[in-house]
Amino acid sequence: MQTLAIAQHEVLKLFGTRRGWMSIAAFLLVWGIILAFVIEPAARFLSNEDTGGLIALLFGDRAQQLANSWGNLEVSLYWLVALYVLPFFAILFSADQMASDRSRGTLRYLLLRCGRFTLFFSRFLGQLFIMLLLVLLTYAASMALTAVHSPERALDMLPVAAPVIVNLWLVLMPYVALMALLSVLASSSKQAIVYSVIGWIVLWLLIRYVQNRFELSSWVGLLDWVMPGAQIQALLRLSHWDALQLAPIPIAHTVVLLVLGAFFMWKRDL
């Protein structure tokens, strides 16, 4: 019951407060711009109606191949864009799982009534639910845009909705877990985001250094899978439920990050 109450409250922070609605409005605006200036031009390009814009610029000759991966042009473009864009939103939305409550002292009121682990994992679950809603929202928006031009193709997006949403949700999990960890260490959401950027760069440099230093060793290739989101490149080549082949990677990242987060949550003075 505590887990449900805490997770519900976490969702309410987004959908029950003015600040939350401002975040949703900002997200919808950005996603609207992506739809209007990235997905829509790309769809026209791949239908030989336009020059293609950003997608053509980024993926060149591979764009056509990627666009066919899901058997539906709009779904393929959505998949391509969402894989790269939604993780940034996951970081932004889930950056304040603990930080400001701890600095403000609100955490002290909560910890009189629930355990540290319960609070940590319940808030993570609440954020995961929010991510599911965001993925659903963006997919629905893409369907709506498609329906404007071609209602039949919009209907074709429905049967593949489940694998797209489940796979994207799995992709976002480690980012939410990363922010759960960092928000325990940081004193504000901004600081947690800064930590994530610094951590990302440092980890990337470290991996490159180790790979160069020990390039002949067989194990260095495994380091490619250490960074959260490491499987995204490979996911571009997969579609439908086949994409679940790579699900163990984000799940493993999530477990490691949550264990670290729970350790610091247990250890920290609050």
Partner: peptide
Amino acid sequence: PQDALMDPHF
């Protein structure tokens, strides 16, 4: 607790 504040958004 001394100086602990409630969440200003609720």
